[in-house]
Design a protein around this nucleic acid. Structure first.
Lengths: 242, 242
DNA sequence: CATAGTTAGTTGTACAGTCCAACTTACTTA
DNA sequence: TAAGTAAGTTGGACTGTACAACTAACTATG
């Protein structure tokens, strides 16, 4: 068997004739919809030789060595295919690889993590939004996608404590209370209003537009993200509960 | 695994009959040696069909689908092979994959990041320590390993601002000024003594041992890491310069 | 044996930013 | 006109860092 004589020393030769793991990319796509954090999932195809037929899964699939220049391009392609948008925020989450995660053999997936605003895009028919409740998803997922999603949620929550990431979940124009609400949804705890405003406004990441949001009470100033605004890293977290 | 017949990554079985990228794992191993942050590099083999012959590179290599249960195990194996130690700290850094990074074809590497104390282990003869100076390595590396290393340095510096990671670079027993020195080496800036002590001591991660470090001046209290001490995340960064 | 030198470790004042709570402002609706 | 609500501001208490001066414990030197 090809794998055996390679097992001791691939490194010492240019011979590439040994078994290769399967290589995939999966994307965890978050959005805020109806005052909840939601994640985009697809239903896997039915079929005899499909792993996890009909199960829910993260959007993703095999790297296409012809189409995909690199991993990020592959992730962006899969995101675009499912949602029709190019995400304002796409970062790598990590990779998961083992002999057992895919019944078809040793496989490794490169997981990405995207934030998109509610308004964005037209979904493909097989994709749907599912709410994250109490920091977790109710549904079971195919492969080790539940682990990947849990890791993505943890990373998101963690980063929201000290970055401006939620700005990428906002529509083009939003108010400060809107933004605070998104922080609170992701962190699942209330934040202090005046400290929140001070922090965001001094971060130089948003700018007021010459309009107010009008409603049944006092109008609120509308803001937009500044052009080319990279995520801001605060030097403190929001003070954690306890 | 499925097929016996493999050539250039084509797996001839069912719907998996398409080219697969090469899959490797690389490890960025940091240590403090002689008051400098250093990284462990190996020299690549010579040979006609070797990519980057004789070049310096991160320790790593192909995933072995027989030996390696998962990616972390593969990384731990490579670390052990090169240094003889099991690192007190090993985390995933990210993955790099593209059509162009390896002349042998589409390849993806899963990069890990390890911290080990100076005292540790016996190196293999092909491995050597190289200093990081001014936040960068002087030497050029094979593949895209310079990018991976730069990313590792950035991640390390960033995390050192708000975590207890440097504790994993310390010998079994150390003093608070020792630890502060390591923080300062990694961050390449001085930290304030009293704030540093307050922060570390209130983090409940180290405990005094009943000994003092004696020297030509006032003895210093020796400490050790508490058992099973996970990295601590502080709620503030050390106050950044400017 | 006294004193200078060095590093460990503490203390005190200033300051920045959050926490908490009360307050003012601007609007709608009854 | 008054009540209700959400936006936005203000002020005092508190926490932890910045900065700087201080004390403590040791060695080396003359």
């Amino acid at each position: 068997m090809a794998g055996e004589d390679r097992a001791e020393g691939f490194e010492k030769s240019g011979d590439l004739d040994f078994p290769r793991p399967l290589t995939t990319v999966d994307v965890v796509i978050f959005s805020i919809r109806g005052d909840q954090l939601q994640v985009l999932l697809v239903r896997r195809p039915a079929g005899e030789d499909e792993p996890f037929p009909q199960a829910l899964a993260l959007p993703g699939g095999f790297v296409d060595v012809v189409k995909d220049r690199d991993l990020a391009a592959c992730a962006a392609r899969k995101l675009k295919e499912k949602t029709g948008v190019t995400a304002p925020y796409l970062e790598q989450l990590g990779s998961w690889g083992s002999a057992s995660r895919d019944p078809r053999g040793w496989s490794a997936t490169h997981a990405y993590f995207a934030l998109i605003p509610e308004e964005a895009g037209a979904l493909t028919p097989d994709a749907r939004w599912f709410p994250i409740q109490g920091g977790r998803l109710k549904e079971k997922l195919a492969f080790d996608h539940s682990d990947i999603l849990a890791s993505a949620i943890q990373r998101l929550r963690n980063k929201v404590e000290y970055t401006s990431l939620p700005a990428y979940l906002m529509p083009a124009e939003f108010t400060l209370p809107d933004l605070q609400r998104v922080y609170e949804i992701v962190l699942d705890r209330p934040l202090e209003k005046s400290a929140f405003r001070t922090r965001i406004l001094s971060a130089d990441m948003i700018e007021p537009v010459a309009k107010m949001r009008r409603g049944p009470n006092r109008p609120a100033q509308l803001y937009r993200l500044k052009k080319n605004s990279k995520p801001v890293y605060f030097v403190r977290t929001f003070n954690p509960p306890e």
